[in-house]
Design a binder for these strands. Structure first.
Lengths: 248, 248
DNA sequence: ACCTCGACTTCTGCATACAGAATACTGTAT
DNA sequence: ATACAGTATTCTGTATGCAGAAGTCGAGGT
């Protein structure tokens, strides 16, 4: 029974409001997908998920709706849900969109420039360079994500932030190989980007960000070409198929 | 491998598959919101909607999830759903994002330029100009929407198309006054945009689109300043409050 | 051996039911 | 009159049940 009392220690929420189950299911499933425990293409059976997560089908369904609207799973109306399997073309398109949105973020951030924000950026940049120096891939990825997010926050455009975050989650899978591929250069570009933002030079900031994300995209394409399908578990069969009980 | 892969059976896509109830509810509610029959800020009670539309609460809930993820309603976890009431700042931000995405669309469309697509654009442009000539506001809005959509389609980027469509639906409310405000000039700009796309001049196309959407945004801001709240029904009370049932 | 037809299984879609949470109301005290 | 507390009520969140549709498997015909 899911009536398990959990110590409501999440602070991001309003005072003591229980996080809806659907949201926890959403989070859990997103992580299962990112970690490949739910493989791309896999058929998701509601009752199995319900059992696996210890809840009823209802919150599962609602979470699936959400995951669908963000491109994590595909819903075939009469049939079921499938973990979305992004093609190379699709990831490429996502990176193009991301490039456009982030270039706009940088432009607006430069127009909104503010000393405190620039300081945050510098700090993150330093963290990233440190990660490069110690060859810490995960650290690079993390600092990179935070830095980009910070730029978008500094744009002051909440809609933009939501959108970039959404796109970003969908391509997060692909950052690790990219970071491995061009870690050092990437952080030089970040430094120049911050210079432009600090100077309030909107065009330069936009252009620098665009070139930066464009190189990231190129890097992805090269990586993928060298390593076409990065350990994609091949559709890991849905469920043990109970043979029809032979009556005899 | 003696490929016994099912040949035609693969397209077993029933043409008359029954549209899921949740989707019809989604459509219906979106139209109710656009037509202001459900007013911004209004509290949506699931059971009332269910009764109004003649279905159970389940498809209502699923539709609400969808409407929430697209910004049509706000979901307050413990409490309920409310028709989203966009602020001026939010609409402005949406228009900024739209400008960035559409500029990218135009850029890509110019790179992908193709005679057949340009012909479609020209035709839509002619329709729009005809609508301007006959002072047909709705015609202008429709032709405008189709033209912009067409440009994004020509970009060849499906992700971009999805994203632009989503943003576009959220600002559709505001197109009519804008069209009324600057109908004629708008179509001159469209013509120049198409020229740039036809010429394959990506920078010009991008710049033209950006200036165009930027003027649209300015037009919105002016309009809104003249007419701060375009007939927003003020939160039309939720439900007749049944006095405590007087028993027998 | 291949294809077709038919029944079975399983799953989704939808409806209903129940418990807890949040709100709004009412009465009382200051 | 205002503020506060207690109570009542409504609504959401979640679980469960049921019917129909989609897919699958197997048998029989060609």
């Amino acid at each position: 029974m899911p009536s398990t009392e959990l110590p409501q220690q999440m602070s991001a929420r309003r005072i003591d409001r229980p996080v809806p189950l659907r949201e926890r299911v959403y989070q859990a499933m997103q992580e299962l997908i990112i970690s490949r425990q739910l493989a791309p293409g896999q058929h998701l059976v509601e009752s199995e998920l319900a059992e696996m997560l210890g809840v009823s089908r209802q919150p599962i369904r609602e979470a699936l709706q959400l995951l669908n609207s963000e491109g994590w799973v595909d819903l075939r109306p009469g049939y079921g849900a499938f973990v979305h399997a992004p093609t190379e073309a699709e990831v490429d398109q996502l990176l193009v969109v991301r490039a456009a949105l982030e270039a706009e973020s940088a432009r607006l951030a430069a127009l909104n420039t503010d000393a405190e924000g620039v300081a945050r950026l510098r700090k993150l940049c330093a963290q990233g360079e440190a990660a490069v120096a110690s060859d810490d891939i995960d650290g690079m990825v993390a600092a990179n994500a935070e830095l980009h997010r910070c730029v978008t926050e500094l744009s002051g455009n909440q809609v933009l932030l939501d959108m970039v975050s959404q796109v970003d989650r969908r391509v997060r899978w692909y950052y690790t190989p990219i970071a491995r591929h061009r870690g050092h250069q990437s952080w030089q570009e970040h430094a120049r980007l911050i210079d432009a933002i600090e100077a309030g030079d909107a065009d330069a900031a936009s252009r620098t960000m665009r070139e930066h994300t464009e190189r990231t995209r190129q890097s992805y394409l090269e990586q993928r070409r060298e390593n076409p399908e990065p350990e994609v578990a091949p559709v890991q069969v849905r469920s043990r198929r109970r043979r029809t009980a032979p009556g005899v």
